[in-house]
Simulated assay, not measured.
Amino acid sequence: MEVKDFIENENKLKNLYYIYSADNYLRDEFKDKFIDKFVEENIRDFNLSIVQPGEDYFKKLSNAVQTPPLGSKKRFVISQLEAEDSFDKKAQQKLISIIENLDKTTCLLFLSSNSLDKRKKLYLTIKKKGSYFEFKAPKYGNLDKWIVRRFREHNKKIDKRSIKVLENMFSNKLEILATEIEKIITRFPDKEKISYYDIKDLISRERFIEDEEIFAFLDLIGEKKTDKALISLKEMLNKGVYPLYLLTMLANQIELLMQVKYYSQFTKNNKEIAKKINKHPYPVKKALQRSRNFTQLELERILEEILTANYHFLTGYYPEQNTALEMIIIKAINY
Rank of each mutant, 00 (worst) to 15 (best):
E2A: 14
K4R: 14
F6E: 07
E8V: 07
N15H: 04
L16C: 04
N24W: 06
R27V: 09
R27C: 07
E29M: 13
E29D: 08
K31Y: 06
K33F: 09
K37N: 04
V39D: 03
N42C: 08
N42P: 05
I43W: 07
I43P: 02
N47V: 00
N47S: 07
P53R: 04
G54F: 11
E55F: 09
D56P: 11
Y57I: 05
Y57S: 03
F58P: 09
F58L: 08
K60M: 09
N63P: 13
P69H: 10
P69L: 10
K73F: 12
K74I: 05
I78F: 02
S79G: 08
S79D: 04
Q80M: 11
E82G: 14
D85P: 04
S86K: 11
F87M: 04
F87Q: 03
F87G: 02
F87P: 01
K90A: 08
A91Y: 05
A91T: 10
L95Q: 01
I96L: 15
K104H: 12
T106V: 07
L109E: 00
N114R: 06
D117S: 12
K120T: 06
K120L: 14
L122D: 01
T125D: 02
G130C: 06
F133Q: 10
A137K: 14
P138Q: 05
N142W: 12
I147Q: 00
H154K: 15
K160I: 13
V165D: 00
L174S: 00
L177V: 06
A178Y: 13
T179R: 06
E182W: 06
T186S: 15
F188Y: 15
K191H: 12
E192R: 09
I209F: 07
E210G: 09
D211C: 07
D211Y: 08
D211I: 07
E213A: 06
E213G: 05
I214S: 02
I214K: 02
F215R: 05
F217Y: 08
L220Y: 00
L220S: 01
L220K: 02
I221S: 00
K225P: 02
A229T: 00
I231M: 13
S232P: 03
L233D: 01
L233K: 02
N238H: 11
Y245L: 14
Y245M: 12
L247M: 14
T248D: 11
M249E: 10
M249A: 14
M249R: 04
L250S: 00
Q253C: 13
M258P: 03
K261Q: 14
Y263C: 09
S264D: 10
F266L: 13
F266D: 12
K271I: 11
E272M: 13
I277R: 02
P283L: 09
P283G: 05
K285Q: 11
L288M: 11
L288G: 01
L288Q: 04
Q289P: 13
Q289R: 08
S291W: 01
S291A: 14
Q296L: 14
Q296I: 07
I302R: 00
E305Q: 05
T308P: 06
T308K: 10
A309H: 08
L314T: 11
G316Q: 07
Y317R: 07
Y318G: 04
P319H: 09
E320N: 07
Q321K: 09
N322M: 11
N322T: 13
A324L: 08
A324C: 08
E326D: 06
M327P: 05
